[in-house]
Amino acid sequence: MSVLERYEPLIDDVEAFSAACERPLPAAVRVNTIKTTIERAQAALAEADIPAEQTDWNPGLFILPDTSAGGNWPYVHGWLHGQEEVSAIPARVVDPQPGEAVWDCCAAPGSKTTQLAALMDDTGRLVATDNNMGRVSALRSNAERLGVTNLAITIEDSRNHSLKPFGGEEYDRTLVDVPCSCEGTIRKNPDVLEEWSYEHVEGTAGVQKGILKRAVQATREGGTVVYSTCTFAPEENEAVLDHVHDAESCQMVDFDLELDSRPGVTEWQDERFDESVTKAKRIYPHLNDTGGFFCAKLEVTG
């Protein structure tokens, strides 16, 4: 059985799903509103004769059917950042407000981090954590290119994240965009399935649970935690939510998303999950002609 076949019981139109997974994904760019406006970025792309299609659901996101994201004038000014459509979902679900304290606990290379900073108007405090020195260099470079100044970067295992350097203050909102099995990126990285193994899914799921637990603990009561992955595996999605729902003071909440999606699943193989995981959203490549994604919004209750 191929990796993707294991998810067929979850999918309503297997043929469309398989066909979409085969199609390469065009480049997409997000407008960096720290440095410019959507209108001016659009004008700069037009000036450079770069065809750009504004997405229906996110006016700051453009598909570039004919070209790559870099190597043009608006890019070198830091007005644009290469970021595929589904990657731009979770920061909008976090919905950070200017002046808030926000934690991005698996931050590098920083596409979502810099999007959070822009949504905060580069004010308040954004803490970005990653455990990999090389990837943190990429994060720092992206953040500087995009003009982010409200960002503090830590290298540590997010499961042991310390609030001490930040005066012990809990976060208003936290993004938990965890490392995962990444089948959802198959349209960008066709090789991703070659590295797939069930042992890796199991090991990764354990790490994901630990990170999400720490995120809930580090976020204030009434605050928001958003959990996202680019895998279809329920072991790394609903099972993680179910586990943390039982272990920590938090609940799943509804959220709006202007993209077609399917609810989280309550059954997978021999497992049963809490009914509230249906508030999570599964995005399959054939639904909106994007990559695959999973996103859930939690409210901290204690």
Binding site: D122, T123, G124, R125, A128, V136, L139, R140, A143, E144, G147, V148, T149, N150, L151, A152, I153, T154, I155, P165, F166, G167
Partner: peptide
Amino acid sequence: WAFYGDMDSPVDIEGLGMT
């Protein structure tokens, strides 16, 4: 480096705003 806001100084950290 320029950082929006403030922290206790000194701080041991990987990045603080931008150079």
